[in-house]
C-alpha cells in the first residue's frame, strides 16, 4: 500500500490517523480503547477527587451531559459557522486555484506577485476582522470575507507549487501526440498538481475554520466562536468545553475528508 500523500505531508501527528483503521489488529484496537478509557476516566476521577470547581475545569461527564442537554441550543450556531466556513472556503479556494493555475503559466508575473501572496499567507487574516466589521457590519459578510482571505492564499501557494512541478518528458509525450495547451493542462499538469492542490485545500480549510471561529469571537451574536465568548462570560464551562469539542471534531472531519480524497485520487504518488 503506497503512503498517502496528504497524510504524508501534513506531519507525523496527523499521520498516525492514517494508520488507524487500515491494518489495525484487534490487540491495537483494544489498546487504543483502553488508553482512552484510562485518560478520560482518570481525568474524571482526579477532577472529582480534588473537587475542582466546574468553572475551572469541568469533568468529562459534565461536558458530555451539557452537550447532551444544550445541543439543540448549540446546533443552529454550528450551522452558522458551517455556512461561513463553506462559503468562505469555496470563494477563497476557487480564486486561489484559478490564480495558481494561471499565474504559473507566466513565470515573470509569478515572480512579481509572489511576495504579496507570501504576505497574505503569513498575515493572520483575523487581524483584518475589526476593519471588515467596520466596513460590512456584524452579519455574515466580514466573516466569509475573512475566511476566504485566509483560505485563498494558502490554496494558491500550495497549488502553485503543484502546477510548477513540470515533468518535461510527460509534456513532451503529450506534445508528440499533438496535444493542445489546454489538453496538456487538463491531462498532464492538473493531475500532476493534484496531490499538492489537496494539501493546499486541507490546510486552507483548517485555516478557514480558525479564522471563522476567531471572527465570530470578535463580532456579532451568532456562530460557535460567539458561543465560546458567551459561555465563558456566563461561566458555563461544561457548555464551553462542549463547543470546543465540536470544533475539534470539525477539524478532524476536515482532515479525514481530505485524507480519504487523497487516498482515492493520489495513491499513485509514492
Amino acid at each position: 500500500m503506497s503512503e498517502d500523500v496528504v497524510g504524508g505531508k501534513v506531519g507525523k501527528g496527523l499521520q498516525s490517523l492514517s494508520t488507524f483503521g487500515a491494518g489495525t489488529s484487534r490487540l491495537e484496537v483494544l489498546a487504543i480503547i483502553a488508553t482512552a478509557v484510562i485518560v478520560i476516566g482518570g481525568l474524571e476521577l482526579v477532577l472529582r477527587w480534588f473537587e475542582v470547581p466546574h468553572y475551572i475545569l469541568p469533568p468529562p461527564s459534565a461536558i458530555v451531559a451539557a452537550l447532551w442537554t444544550d445541543f439543540p441550543l448549540i446546533l443552529p450556531h454550528l450551522g452558522y459557522t458551517l455556512v461561513v466556513l463553506l462559503s468562505g472556503f469555496a470563494i477563497g479556494a476557487g480564486i486561489g486555484l484559478i490564480l495558481a493555475a494561471v499565474i504559473t503559466q507566466f513565470p515573470f508575473a509569478e515572480k512579481i506577485i509572489a511576495p504579496y501572496i507570501l504576505i497574505l499567507v503569513t498575515t493572520p487574516m483575523l487581524a483584518l476582522v475589526p476593519l471588515l466589521i467596520l466596513w460590512f457590519g456584524f452579519g455574515y459578510e466580514p466573516r466569509i470575507i475573512a475566511v476566504a482571505l485566509a483560505t485563498g492564499p494558502m490554496v494558491m501557494i500550495n497549488s502553485a507549487t503543484g502546477f510548477r512541478r513540470v515533468d518535461a518528458n510527460k509534456i513532451a509525450l503529450a506534445r508528440s501526440y499533438g496535444a493542445s495547451t489546454l489538453q496538456i493542462f487538463w491531462k498532464v499538469r492538473a493531475p500532476m498538481a493534484l496531490p499538492m492542490i489537496l494539501v493546499g485545500l486541507m490546510i486552507g480549510a483548517i485555516f478557514g475554520l480558525l479564522t471563522a471561529v476567531g471572527a465570530e469571537m470578535v463580532g456579532g451574536g451568532f456562530g460557535l466562536g460567539n458561543r465560546l465568548t458567551t459561555y465563558s462570560s456566563m461561566i458555563r464551562m461544561p457548555q464551553f468545553f462542549g463547543v470546543v469539542l465540536i470544533l475539534s471534531l470539525l477539524g478532524i472531519l476536515i482532515y479525514v475528508i481530505f485524507f480519504l480524497i487523497g487516498k482515492k485520487w493520489t495513491s499513485w504518488e509514492t
Partner: peptide
C-alpha cells in the same frame, strides 16, 4: 528513456 507512463 524512462518508460514515461503517466503514474495516475
Amino acid at each position: 528513456q524512462e518508460a514515461n507512463l503517466l503514474p495516475w
